[in-house]
Amino acid sequence: MTDESVFRLLGPIMVGPSSSHTAGAVRIGRTARLLYGKQPEEVDVYFHGSFADTWRGHGSDKAIIGGLLGFKTFDERIKEADKYAKEAGLKIRFKKIKLGKRYHPNSIKIVVNEGKDDSIYVIAESVGGGDIVIREIMGFKTEITGSNETIILRHGDLVGTLSKITGAISSFNLNILTIRSKDIPKKDEALTTIEIEEKSPKELETKLKKIDGMKMVRILPSLTEGEEMF
């Protein structure tokens, strides 16, 4: 939304009480869900910094559960998230963690399916006004804000994979805004994150999945998708 719009001051419509500790937490939960790719069943949530102190009063627990169930920041069901979690078969544990000084005081770590093969984890910060920054995905440092659609890929670290990926993206006439690629520590794999300017078509996902050595393809829609006023 542009800086000059009055809807920046009268909005967003959201579940209270806190844009950073409630709305931001919903989005962090939703990010974990999107990364996992389907409804998570076993989740460990770690509260760091101010979340560890104020989660109860801000309903951050329900907010994260809501996000893990795919709810948006204005969804009234968040208030009764525990009930919906039960229905969805979602088991969730909350713990306190000290991630260290490097991390923003409003950080959350979410681990899905700890110890299993398809386990994923993410560390994200709630930086205010409901905005979040994804700082780490499975040991890989990132800086994803979700203001754009982001493609997250895990692939064998094969020579040429990256050019195949960018080739696939440009074949749909999509503009790449940022691209980061790095080896995952202790694995023969790399993680690549790509922010693109437009919304990608479904076919892109299919095409990316077909690339040799591709292990995971996730498309994270822009954070505010479905929350627009217009």
Binding site: R8, V15, G16, T22, K79
Partner: peptide, 21 residues
């Protein structure tokens, strides 16, 4: 109070100040 109890409000400009407008 509604915001505090996880009700749906309009941030105006923030959630903490959502009652006045």
């Amino acid at each position: 109070e509604y915001s505090s109890s996880m009700g749906v409000i309009v941030a105006s400009p923030t959630a903490g100040s959502s009652g006045v407008v």
